[in-house]
């Protein structure tokens, strides 16, 4: 299996990063809708700040090191490590809705992966280990998808970070609301910051002890979203 992100494998990276991936990400705002309700996000600038902080302070410090730990565990087909990291990933999601998002998109991504044709790298051993994760966390499944699609860690992390940035920007366009041009401007700036962010992730030890999820206001707002009267998103 090749593990370089070259042009020959670029379609695999683009497919994994695509907003068209049928995992239901479009129905989740990961707290952004609640942040609008609370007034923490009001306009394009505050929406961009929210998304940038989510990527840099929450995702890169939390699930990203565990994604790398899972990427390594899938390489070794290490059942115990996969199960332990999967438990960590689920337990780091601090509210019911954040958990729902991680579990629902994880299940959908597993279905998508298992249904792909021409993917001999996804062996029976991978399938059995994937089925043993109950429920499979989003990052656990994304890591095996990146691996069997032939992406290296950097490529897989880029695909994941881009899909997060794009999904959250699309949510902001609907919620704030913002024009398409304003949304694209945000995405352009967020995208420009991803390479440095991913190098930071790659320099962080890929062990659970690296994964920090301290984000009290995200937890508070996400919990309040459960009873928010008007809402478009499931989280």
């Amino acid at each position: 299996m090749t593990t370089t992100t070259d042009f020959a494998n670029l379609p695999a990276l683009l497919q994994l990063a695509s907003a068209a991936l049928p995992v239901g990400a479009f129905s989740h705002s990961l707290g952004l809708e609640a942040a609008l309700e609370a007034g923490a996000v009001r306009d394009a600038a505050s929406a961009e700040r929210w998304i940038a902080d989510y990527l840099a302070l929450v995702w890169a410090e939390g699930e990203a090191p565990l994604w790398r730990a899972q990427y390594a565990a899938w390489g070794a087909l290490d059942a115990a490590a996969l199960a332990g990291h999967n438990d960590e990933l689920l337990a780091l999601r601090e509210t019911a809705e954040l958990r729902l998002e991680g579990e629902q998109t994880g299940r959908s991504l597993a279905q998508w992966l298992k249904g792909l044709p021409d993917l001999p790298a996804l062996t029976a051993a991978h399938r059995a280990l994937l089925d043993a994760l109950q429920p499979p966390a989003w990052a656990s499944v994304h890591a095996v998808a990146a691996r069997v699609l032939g992406l290296d860690e950097r490529g897989g992390l880029h695909a994941l970070a881009w899909s997060l940035a794009e999904n959250l920007t699309a949510a902001a366009i609907k919620l704030v609301p913002l024009g398409q041009a304003a949304g694209q401007a945000i995405l352009r700036r967020l995208g420009g910051r991803l390479p440095a962010l991913i190098e930071h992730v790659l320099a962080t030890p890929a062990v659970p002890a690296s994964a920090c999820n301290f984000a009290p206001m995200l937890g508070i707002l996400s919990a309040r979203h459960e009873t928010q009267y008007t809402r478009l998103f499931r989280s």
Partner: peptide, 10 residues
């Protein structure tokens, strides 16, 4: 930065 972040301690 989490101390000032709207997702952190705000």
């Amino acid at each position: 930065p989490l101390r000032a972040s709207p997702l952190g301690l705000a």
